[in-house]
């Protein structure tokens, strides 16, 4: 393969990567940076049972106890709110800066299955960031390859 062809291939690859990245970023563009949830706490679980956010989002969760005094705690994020009584919801907020799944627990003893009253917070990879990374780096590679090719002519 001669130099010329190789550069052309590079340009194509760069544009392709850029397009995929753009797509990824766009798919998430409709999502807001601020994720708001209303979480119902009941014996012995939470509804919804899985909260899905993206890394970097600002997460705002309002917890309403339905049937007893419950609490709220997220592993590792150490976000915690004890003693949430029915009728007086509490709101917690934090920045989801770490990726992964984090278990949510009830933090106030509320009955027999209390130790296993759980939900999950899933912080997904930040596609906006990853997408943008690919757009920017992909297009830069194409650009450099393009000017290189021009110089040769």
């Amino acid at each position: 393969m001669n130099r010329h062809k190789m550069l052309l291939v590079l340009i194509v690859i760069g544009i392709a990567v850029g397009t995929v990245g753009m797509g990824l970023a766009a798919a998430q563009q409709q999502d807001s940076y601020v994720k708001q949830f209303t979480l119902k706490a009941f014996r012995f679980g939470f509804e919804p049972a899985r909260l899905v956010v993206n890394q970097g989002d600002i997460v705002v969760i309002t917890i309403e106890s339905v049937d007893a005094i419950h609490g709220f705690y997220i592993e590792d994020y150490e976000v915690r709110q004890d003693f949430i009584t029915p009728g007086s919801p509490e709101t917690v907020s934090f920045v989801a800066d770490r990726m992964g799944m984090f278990r949510i627990h009830c933090s106030t003893i509320c009955g027999s299955l209390h130790p296993f009253m759980m939900a999950q917070l899933e912080v997904q990879p930040n596609l906006r960031f990853i997408g943008s990374f690919f757009v920017i780096s992909g297009l830069s590679v194409s650009f450099i390859a393009y000017v290189w090719m021009r110089k040769e002519d």
């Binding site: 009941f42 939470f46 509804e47 939900a119």
Partner: peptide, 16 residues
């Protein structure tokens, strides 16, 4: 016990 599904916990609880 550690999963997020409340229904399975309560269905497994004979006394509830």
């Amino acid at each position: 016990l550690f999963g997020p599904w409340a229904w399975i916990k309560s269905w497994g609880d004979l006394l509830l």
